[in-house]
Every structure is written in structure tokens, then in C-alpha cells.
Design a protein around this nucleic acid. Structure first.
Length: 661
DNA sequence: CAAAACTGCCTTTTT
DNA sequence: GGCAGTTTTG
């Protein structure tokens, strides 16, 4: 492909970013300013300058982003793109870790455990250090451990740096947690990043190999980078210093998951000699929408100064609607959508309803169903969270790795085989004392039903090579009478049907995998499933369906819609009450900013005057962000509960003391 | 050991 | 108000 085409239709700033010769580059890309375009063109440009595809590493946060990036580069340069490494942080790290597992004393065939396995593991860890769950809640411990891992802090360092008793408790739990994981031959999601960081830190030869291999690094959504990801990038890039990052600090909304906005704010300091390029021309939204966005985000103090400039021209003003309650909010929006579509002015796919919390869409779903409007609720319970899916995957993992403790505990009595809490507790006690895996402890204690179960799994594993993975799974489920278990748990035909369908779907996934992969292995399948994310719904032709989209503001980042409803703009909801208490309102404001900038042509902001919360109706004040986007100053103490609507019983509630300030 | 009653919680969730 | 996770009961 000709170099001229790669550089066609770029504005001066985009052109500078695409042709930046080398060295650290920070592209501050405002919403809708052509961020992805800059990355893909830059890759194409590097290739056109004769740089080998295999020396380029482009990392993203989601599988979807990685896939899209690869597709778009392929469109530009053709099959030459095959040699590129375009991957999520996590899958890149899995590859590196598998290759060098021995260096960290890791099993090469480690499995990746998910969130609920993590919780099981943390409980095991607490048991091991004889810490009652009352003194440190498993969930709280896990959150702290995850944050430590995200900051690239090892158990040793956490212990050494513990400032108080609680820190030390967490650190000891962390250490025990890692030991349980290792004994289960497992790593968690955070480990993929942390351990890769440790590997690069401690093993100079591995570091050098990666530095020589990946001479050009490109990172998308850099504002979402956490400490561990930063360490990995820094280590690989420190030799050749060709690190190009693209992001928008104003769209950093994953701080609560360990993303560290300072990484983008301090990039120039961390990488001296950085060229900074601002992309401030927005190609998505009309003027009034951009004005609203600018007016809101201006109130944040921790940010790179930027102002979005429009290129789409004027448009209709942003609407701010006030409704009595959440029912009216839903009713009005749904009937408006129906009306617009019937008038032929829009199609369902033009609309998105964006909200802060997962409980908000309920009432919208009701109204949409009643109006027979097709919709897609993004997120919520994922396919991989379904009980049956998790059971079957646990069987698989256990077959591959009999030491996998979380998986064993999950299915040790599924279907029921007479192994209750007492037996399990006793066996886990032995396992901890002897330092052996739970599976081995069951074997040693001679718990016959479990031994038989483990034998069934071993038979299954042995049969995979001859009959193939999907067929073997089918036989295993038959041998375990899993269909009867479903029938037992779900007597009514409808839910039983749904559960059976979920199992069928896993078999489909396995069939698909077996056809594609070479050679197909159970480990490969499990890894793919662990790192996969769900695809948006598509019709038979692979086109997105014409449906109204319902999703959280978090899920909306990176997307755009002609018509957006940003609902529930109330104090306590957006910004969320907890963010007010925890002093993270700036992140909420970025969330608001993300929501506003999703809209191309029409933006409608709504709020309810009262809303049912925790089974009680409460008065709601307009969000401070609503005042901000009008250019007004919000009233002084917006967090105080509304005097008018608040229920009188509030006064008698012991909690009301904290509200009075 | 499994079903029934009972708490306690309650933001967001790229991998 | 609703659910999941835990404790109590049969």
C-alpha cells in the first residue's frame, strides 16, 4: 500500500502523531478525535517505513479492541499484518508466562482462575493462617490483594511495607493466598500482569529478549493502565524507547479497579523527551453536545488541559428533563423512542440508554417489553457466570489439573454424592496441615465417593485424544448424570430448558474450538474461555441487530450512538453516594463526560425527583453535573438529603446522624 | 446431609 | 426489594 494513502485524510495533529519518528509519544486524544485511527495508521506507517511487523507490539485492554485494531491494520496493509503482535495485556502476558514459567517456579500448564475461584482461594488462605473470616472479610481481603497486585507489589514487599496491623493482616493473607494458588497450579487475572512484571524485573535475559523483539510499542486507552501494566511497558520500552501511548485522562473511569490516572498525567516526567500531541477536534458530536461536555469536565482539577472543538456543526440543544419518578422516566423515554421510530425519523439501533448502576435498567426493560421494542441489555449476568457453565468448566479444569482446589470444592458434591460440609472441612484441615492439595487429601482420607468422582474425571481426560474434546465432554456429563442434576434443581420446564441450552452452548464452543485449534487441547480451550469476553448480539449476517442498547456508562466507553439518553442524573446516583463519601467525585465526573460524549446528534439528560432505593422511596436532588453542564454553580451542599421528599421516618433512623452536617 | 429460614448487603467489572 | 450467602432445622 502506498504511503500517501496511509497519510490521507489526517488533520495536522493526527499526521504528526502518525509520523512521529520514534521515542516516547503521548497522544492525548479527546473523545471522538480519531484515536483508533491514529494508532492503526501509525502501525501502517511504521510498516511502510520498512519496520518488521514482528517487532511491533500493540496492546489494548479488551479483546474487541484488539480484534478491531488488527482488522483495521489489515485493511490498510494487507496480509503483512499477520506478523504483528496485537493483543490484550492479559493474553500477551499469558504467552510470555507460559514460555518462561520455569523461571518463576510456575507450572507451565497453569490454569487461570476467575473471580469466584479467587474468593474460594482467599477463604482457604484465611483458614490456613487461622484467621477467622470475621476479622477480615474474604471479599475485603480479595479487594486489597487485587489492588496490591495491580500496583505490582509482591507479598514480600507488602509484608515489609505494612504500616499497621491491618496492612500486615492483609499481607499475610496475600502470601497465603498466593501459596494456595500455586498449590492449585493456578494464577489469577492480576497475576498475569504482576508475574510478567516480576519476570521482566528479575530476569535480565528475558527482558533483553523482549526488548530486542518488540522495538515499537503502541498502547491504546493508556489512561486505564495500572501499576503492573506500566512496569511491563516500561521494562520492554526502556531500551529502544519507542513507546507510543494514546489515551484520554478525561475518560479514566477504572480507578476503582486499580487503573492509575497518574500514569497518563505523569507520562512526560516518566519518559523524558516525550512528544505530546493533543487531538482536540471531535468528529462525532454536534456543538451543543461538545459544549456540555467541556463545561462539565472543566471542573476536574487532575487533568491535562484540553477543549474539544467541534467539526459537525450546530445541532439541537441538549435536553434536560425532570420526571416525578423512575417509572415516568422510563415511560417517557420508551414512548419517545417508539414514536420516533414509527415516524420513520430513526431506527431502534440509533438509541442508547445509559445509566450508572445495574438496578436502573429493570424498569426500562419492563416498559420496552410492554411496548414490544427490541433491546439489548449489555453486561449483567454473563454466560460464563451461569451455574451450569461454571460447573462444566470446573469438571474440565479438574480433569486437566486434579490439584485445582477451587474447582474441586465447587463440584465436589455436584451432583450430590453425599459429601457434606463436615467432610469437606475435615479434609481441608488435613490438606492444610500436610501441605498437600485438597484432591490428594480426599484420596488419602479415602473418601470413596470423591475418589470415584476423580477416577471418572481421569477417564474422561484420558479419552479426549481419541474421541475429541466435545464428544468426551458429552460422555462425561452422561457418566455424571448431569442432566438429572439439572432436572432435580430446576423442576419447572422453562428454566430447565434454559439450563440445558447453556450446557449445549458450551459444547458448541468446544466444537468450534476443536475445529479451529491445532492441536486442540483441553488447556487451550480453558485458556480461551478464561480470556474470552462476550460478543455483542449480531444477526445471522453478522450485522449488529437493530435494537435499543441499554448499558452502564462504563460499558459505553468507546462507543457512539446518534441518540443518547443519560438517565438518573441525580445526587447519590451520578455522582454515586459512595464516591462522594470516598472523595472520588472526579472519576464520576469523567463518567458523566464519557456519557455525554457518546451522543452524536441528540443528547437527553433525565432525572427523577423521587426514586425507590433499597425498597424505600427517597427524594432526589439534581446531580451537580447537571448544574455544571448548564454553566451554573451547584448549590453549596448538594449531598444533604432533600428536605421536601425525604420520608419523615428518616429522622428516627439511627443512620441519619451522618447526613446532618 | 439437604431443605428451610434468616441475615445482611447493596456501584462500576476491560481480563 | 431482592438476592446470595449463612445458619438453623428436619
Amino acid at each position: 500500500m502506498r504511503s500517501a494513502d496511509i497519510l490521507a485524510d489526517l488533520n495536522p495533529e493526527q499526521l504528526r502523531a502518525v509520523t512521529h519518528p520514534g521515542g516516547p509519544l503521548l497522544v492525548l486524544a479527546g473523545a471522538g478525535s480519531g484515536k483508533t485511527r491514529v494508532i492503526t495508521r501509525r502501525i501502517a506507517h511504521l510498516l511502510s517505513r520498512g519496520i518488521a511487523a514482528r517487532s511491533i507490539l500493540a496492546v489494548t485492554f479488551t479483546n474487541k479492541a484488539a480484534r478491531e485494531m488488527r482488522e483495521r491494520v489489515t485493511e490498510l496493509v494487507g496480509p503483512g499484518a499477520k506478523e504483528l503482535t496485537v493483543s490484550t495485556f492479559h493474553s500477551f502476558c499469558v504467552r510470555v508466562l507460559r514460555e518462561h514459567a520455569d523461571r518463576l517456579g510456575l507450572h507451565r500448564g497453569f490454569t487461570i482462575c476467575d473471580e469466584s475461584d479467587q474468593l474460594t482461594t482467599v477463604k482457604a488462605a484465611l483458614r490456613e493462617i487461622r484467621l477467622p473470616e470475621t476479622s477480615l472479610h474474604p471479599k475485603a481481603a480479595l479487594a486489597r490483594i487485587s489492588l496490591l497486585k495491580n500496583r505490582c507489589v509482591t507479598p514480600g514487599r507488602a509484608l515489609a511495607e505494612a504500616a499497621d496491623d491491618f496492612d500486615e493482616l492483609v499481607a499475610r493473607t496475600y502470601r497465603a493466598y498466593d501459596e494456595v494458588l500455586r498449590r492449585s497450579r493456578s494464577v489469577d487475572f492480576d497475576d498475569l500482569l504482576l508475574l510478567t512484571g516480576v519476570l521482566l524485573d528479575r530476569h535480565a535475559d528475558v527482558r533483553r529478549r523482549l526488548q530486542e523483539r518488540y522495538r515499537h510499542l503502541l498502547v491504546d486507552e493508556y489512561q486505564d493502565t495500572n501499576g503492573a501494566q506500566y512496569e511491563i511497558l516500561r521494562r520492554i520500552a526502556e531500551k529502544h524507547r519507542n513507546l507510543a501511548v494514546v489515551g484520554d485522562d478525561d475518560q479514566s473511569i477504572y480507578g476503582w479497579r486499580g487503573a492509575d490516572i497518574r500514569k497518563i498525567l505523569n507520562f512526560e516526567r516518566d519518559f523524558p523527551g516525550t512528544e505530546v500531541i493533543r487531538l482536540e477536534t471531535n468528529y462525532r458530536s454536534t456543538e451543543p453536545i461538545l459544549e456540555a461536555a467541556n463545561r462539565v469536565i472543566r471542573h476536574n482539577r487532575s487533568r491535562h488541559e484540553k477543549t474539544l472543538r467541534g467539526s459537525c456543526g450546530p445541532g439541537e440543544p441538549v435536553r434536560i428533563l425532570e420526571m416525578e419518578d423512575e417509572e415516568n422516566e422510563a415511560e417517557l423515554i420508551v414512548s419517545e423512542i417508539g414514536f420516533e421510530v414509527r415516524q420513520g425519523r430513526a431506527k431502534f439501533g440509533d438509541f442508547a440508554i445509559l445509566f450508572r448502576t445495574q438496578m436502573q435498567p429493570r424498569v426500562f426493560e419492563g416498559r420496552l417489553r410492554a411496548s414490544r421494542i427490541p433491546y439489548d441489555l449489555v453486561g449483567g449476568m454473563s454466560f460464563f457466570d451461569r451455574k451450569e457453565v461454571r460447573d462444566v468448566l470446573a469438571y474440565l479444569r479438574l480433569a486437566v489439573n486434579p490439584d485445582d482446589e477451587p474447582s474441586l470444592l465447587r463440584v465436589v458434591n455436584v451432583p450430590p454424592r453425599g459429601v457434606g460440609k463436615t467432610t469437606v472441612d475435615r479434609t481441608l484441615e488435613t490438606a492444610a496441615k500436610e501441605g498437600i492439595s485438597a484432591g490428594a487429601a480426599f484420596e488419602r482420607a479415602g473418601v470413596e465417593p470423591v475418589r470415584a468422582f476423580l477416577r471418572t474425571l481421569a477417564d474422561f481426560a484420558a479419552r479426549i485424544p481419541s474421541v475429541g474434546l466435545p464428544q468426551a465432554i458429552r460422555q462425561l456429563l452422561g457418566a455424571l448424570r448431569y442432566d438429572q442434576e439439572i432436572a432435580r434443581c430446576y423442576p419447572d420446564a422453562v428454566s430447565r430448558q434454559a439450563r440445558t441450552a447453556a450446557v449445549e452452548e458450551i459444547l458448541n464452543l468446544a466444537e468450534n474450538y476443536a475445529r479451529r485449534a491445532q492441536p486442540p487441547t483441553p488447556d487451550g480451550f480453558l485458556e480461551e474461555v478464561a480470556l474470552a469476553s462476550e460478543e455483542p448480539e449480531e444477526d445471522e449476517k453478522g450485522r449488529p441487530r437493530d435494537v435499543v442498547t441499554l448499558m452502564t456508562l462504563h460499558a459505553a466507553k468507546g462507543l457512539e450512538f446518534p441518540r443518547v439518553y443519560l438517565v438518573g442524573c441525580e445526587e447519590g446516583l451520578l455522582p454515586h453516594q459512595r464516591s462522594v463519601e470516598e472523595n472520588t467525585v472526579e472519576e464520576e465526573r469523567r463518567l458523566m463526560y464519557v456519557g455525554i460524549t457518546r451522543a452524536r446528534r441528540r443528547l437527553t439528560i433525565t432525572r427523577a425527583k423521587t426514586r425507590a432505593k433499597y425498597g424505600r422511596r427517597e427524594g432526589c436532588l439534581p446531580s451537580r453535573f447537571v448544574f455544571e453542564l448548564r454553566g451554573e454553580t451547584p448549590p453549596a451542599a448538594p449531598a444533604a438529603p432533600s428536605a421536601k421528599q425525604a420520608a419523615p421516618r428518616r429522622a428516627s433512623s439511627p443512620r441519619s446522624a451522618r447526613g446532618a452536617r
